[in-house]
Amino acid sequence: MKNLKYLIVGILFGIIFVKAEILSWFRIHEMFRLQSFFMYGIIGTAIIVSMLSIFIIKKFNIKTFSGEDIVIEDKESNKGQIYGGLIFGIGWAITGSCPGPLYAQIGAGFLVVGVVYLSAVFGTWCYGYVKNKLPH
């Protein structure tokens, strides 16, 4: 099963969410009130480590395990990043959770977050439904 390896990486990601308390509503509120460095430390460190890793991959032209070139496509710039970003930020503060931690919260036993998750999937669907009428 070639997809099983992604399941294992996901498990690691989920464990980190719990162990670093990123899935905590409280941590997100400390962050948005600038009362703790914790979340900024995590996101900042993650960005730096990711940046260095990609620099090394590019510098030594490292290929995937199956020998493909590693390609990172540029993201398309549009107004969605502004409007969508603001909307996402509001939801992030209300639920105390971005999509990754949602999965980990349900796994960690907060079954009620299943409602948040279903609503997020419905929000995703509604975006697809009205996409062409929105400013981009």
Binding site: I47, K75, F88, T95, V116, T124, Y127
Partner: peptide, 30 residues
């Protein structure tokens, strides 16, 4: 907190083309 908040997370992340992982970590580091 569940329905409205969740809806905004889903709608907003798709409208923005990604969430904290895709934009803030993957996107900024590239």
């Amino acid at each position: 907190f569940f329905v409205v908040g969740g809806f905004l997370v889903g709608f907003g992340s798709r409208y923005a083309g990604g969430c904290t992982s895709g934009h803030s970590i993957m996107g900024i580091s590239t």
